[in-house]
Design a binder for these strands. Structure first.
Lengths: 68, 68
DNA sequence: GATTAATGTAATATATATCTTACATAATGT
DNA sequence: ACATTATGTAAGATATATATTACATTAATC
């Protein structure tokens, strides 16, 4: 459940709270997704990607899994 | 909530039920996601993509939205 | 070093994804 | 026509994503 959200978020200069507001979700939700402890919905993933200016693959697609 | 699941599923020659079994979910769930009536979890999206041999962007990322 | 901003985290409540069961329809083969 | 396979869909139950509230910690700023 790892992802690259934090990397792109700080890259754009947003705080967790700012990103949360923009995608209409709670700061805690953003924090837990970044921490890899949530399994977010596709719609939320898409909203986050659009806000950060990247695609789903760039944040959420891991080309090589550990067990490959 | 549109996506290209059906296209890739029939391309690989899977039935809804076969794909459902492989990603450990119900046939109905697959059907509703294909119909654009469900907002699936990221984990399920990833499992589907791996089973169909494509990435998240290829199935779930729409480059140009209607409202752009 | 005190204050503020940003983040981590936990408990309970609520919304919703998904399951289960069931039936209906469409397509295909015999 | 009949049987079979694939798909659509609905009602109620369950699991889980997310909200809410609250407090702790860390980093930055004064």
């Amino acid at each position: 459940m790892k992802n690259r959200m934090r990397m792109y978020r700080v890259g754009v200069g947003f705080t967790q709270e700012e990103l949360a507001f923009k995608v209409d979700v709670t700061r805690q939700t953003i924090g837990l997704i970044e921490a890899g402890k949530y399994n977010p919905s596709l719609n939320l993933c898409i909203a986050i990607c659009k806000t950060l200016g990247v695609t789903l693959d760039e944040i959420f697609w891991m080309e090589d899994d550990q067990d490959v």
